[in-house]
Nucleic acid binder design. Structure first.
Lengths: 147, 147
DNA sequence: TCCTATATTGGACTCAGTCCAAGTCAAGAC
DNA sequence: GTCTTGACTTGGACTGAGTCCAATATAGGA
């Protein structure tokens, strides 16, 4: 049993076939799947698993802090199982590729007291946008870079 | 005529009633409306304006760099007319209130070369999450803070 | 093995956003 | 002032992500 499943068990989760399969799909530190991608991969392991179960389980994993929701394109939510290491994301505006990145400074330190407006600030998410090496090479000559 | 309309005119835009109304709705530096909120306000000024026109116009304003798209909740896109001043956003996880904030450091400086993976990094967006004074006061005694 | 609270299912539903063919109209030409 | 035309608008159908729910199934403790 994976560490994730062990932790879930310890929290009183019932270990159903569906939850095991979803945990298996998310196993791997650097995946950023959408709910539908998780579902597609889960179906290969357990053909009868429903979309609703995938959404339910992902939502619960997010609530428990085992998975982080990331939204890099303003459209689809993605699920990041690398929730136990502080990191941010670097996104290719050409192909949408996503890399986990570690920053030198806590982004909270860049927000001065005078800009907090009395908020109790708890968290920051940073998304970097650029072009990955493959997309840079692909557009080297033709046209201006996008985004 | 507002500066925005003047700039659009200079770019060859036809100044239709719909576009004037949308520009008027977005007038004001610190609004962060969704497309449907823009539509609702536009309808008060021009009852027959359609959702499609609102989406079209907002999309064009974003392409022209006159308005920025922001997504603070992973769900709805919001439109920020304060596109000519570099800033980031502070979001209340209680009520969703959004404030523009100016940082002391360029967030790009926190991403070391070794974490760029050959990307040509162009841009960073930072979103801070916390609780606004009103939400802090509201939950002062009862229950643990959310998020 | 039984029991039951918890989880799963599929299908209907919502909501944001897109697409399109038909109709309208801003603004340049005269 | 009127004409002309291509850009703009419209409403309605459509898509895709995500939610909700009543009926059914099942994990795991008794």
């Amino acid at each position: 049993m994976s560490d994730l499943l062990r932790r879930l068990r310890a929290r009183g989760w019932r270990l159903t076939a569906q939850r095991r399969v979803i945990a298996e799909v998310l196993d791997g530190e650097h995946v950023h799947y959408t709910a539908d991608e998780v579902h597609a991969r889960a179906v290969e392991l357990l053909p009868e698993i429903s979309r609703a179960s995938v959404y339910n389980t992902l939502g619960e994993l997010v609530t428990l802090g085992e998975v982080t929701e990331v939204n890099t394109d303003g459209r689809v939510r993605r699920y990041d199982p690398n929730a136990h290491e502080a990191h941010q994301h670097l996104v290719c505006s050409g192909c949408g590729a996503i890399r986990d990145v570690r920053l030198t400074d806590d982004p909270l330190s860049a927000l001065p007291e005078g800009e907090r407006f009395g908020f109790q600030v708890a968290q920051a998410t940073v998304t970097y946008y650029g072009r990955c090496p493959a997309c840079v090479a692909a557009n080297a000559a033709p046209g201006p870079p996008v985004g």
